[in-house]
Design a protein around this nucleic acid. Structure first.
Lengths: 226, 226
DNA sequence: ATTAAAACATGACATTTATCATATTAAAGA
DNA sequence: TCTTTAATATGATAAATGTCATGTTTTAAT
């Protein structure tokens, strides 16, 4: 069993507040899992009873809407935690988590996390701040969905993907989403998303090669996104 | 200075976890304020440095969008707290709070709240659960904005106002919003909102008298909202 | 390598929603 | 009370977006 002390998750998440002694205990109670691209980590409505640490990979958090389509609420990546809200609320998860690429995650049972929560004030404060950050993000996102056009939302989402997840050596965006997934982030029909991407390409804003997206005129994109 | 012990806010909010002794201290550090309809409690970007307890009245939490229009993110009413996220994140508030009717609020300085926060585990847990609840609500709201039509969102919002804030003796919805405000909850143009309300009226779903809205066929509304 | 399925792409068209113009009504101030 | 302003209402039209059909390309499975 690998040590939690050197784990990347410890470095970037709320877990950075844990002491050496607590990290040692953590190494014992965690379980390690490999999740293949497309596999489900947990599903909306499920009782997760713990949190997941993302050691490697990216996943999408989705919610089924009334019309039967999935909406992507958030992308979560290496170094972050999953399932905190559900653990604190003591409720089933309200979102599904699906791997966008092969992932390596560790599961920590609720009882153990809650132990640190009670003992280590800084840790609980960190978790709280993370959730507060999520809430603020959600508010922003909400306003964008309500007030911006699909074109603006697409431009904004592309920039977000760029700024948050970076790009490969060939300059293409690191997160590779299907047109369908991209559409379900911005809240539009797949065809509309495809059409707008083609428009962006024709206008020289981006270059498209399969799922690869390369920025050609980032300033024009920024102007479009408002 | 009135006692916090019998206050309605204590009954419904995170504050219910405070001990008698803590409540007595609270009575001393709080300041009481009357806010007139239309007045601003705090504005996006401001440093609030404490939380507000709503003793009476309702307010809207709004966020300015890139196109200059305000979007109503949430309505908050009697018994609830304001400004918790900002306090925990130690950041300026990300939303403005504006009174929809005359309000009575109490302000508790951050230092005092944080004191209870450190001492009283149940209190901090309650605050956290509230914020987690807000986050879940925000997720739901986001998906609705992204996936539902304006008509569905209007029907849903009317039902929400009904279920959350109730109705007056004359059966009309208790919260009275302008068409403009209603539009900025559902994320549409004021004219579209007015038109759809007229449609609902013509279809016998609701009755309109000035700002008053009376439900005539709640089941049909529910069907519309999905 | 071949085939089946999924993803991508685009046209044609319908529908939804926004915008602009202009009344009408209600509310607020002088 | 009068008068001015803001809110509500509705028509006409434009623009944005969704839906359906259909073809092409890519991917995955046999």
């Amino acid at each position: 069993m690998s040590k939690c002390e050197q784990c990347i998750v410890r470095e970037f998440s709320s877990l950075k507040a844990l002491t050496k002694e607590e990290l040692l205990r953590l190494s014992d109670c965690k379980t390690s899992h490999i999740i293949k691209k497309g596999e489900v980590i947990f599903e909306e409505g499920e009782n997760v009873n713990g949190i997941y640490c993302i050691k490697d990979g990216i996943c999408k958090l989705t919610k089924l809407s009334a019309n039967g389509k999935d909406h992507i609420v958030k992308l979560v990546t290496k170094g972050e935690l999953l399932g905190q809200r559900s653990m604190i609320s003591d409720e089933p998860v309200n979102l599904s988590a699906v791997a966008l690429e092969d992932m390596h995650v560790c599961f920590i049972p609720k009882a153990d996390v809650m132990g640190y929560f009670d003992q280590n004030n800084q840790f609980s404060m960190n978790v709280m701040k993370t959730i507060c950050g999520d809430l603020k993000e959600a508010d922003d996102h909400m306003v964008n969905l309500a007030q911006k056009t699909v074109k603006e939302r697409l431009a904004e989402t592309l920039l977000y993907l760029h700024d948050t997840f970076g790009k490969n050596e060939d300059e293409s965006l690191k997160v590779q989403l299907s047109r369908d997934e991209l559409a379900s982030i911005i809240g539009t029909a797949t065809e509309s998303c495809i059409r707008l991407l083609s428009d962006f390409k024709k206008s020289g804003l981006i270059e498209l090669t399969g799922k690869k997206i390369v920025f050609k005129d980032i300033n024009a994109l920024k102007k479009l996104a408002d």
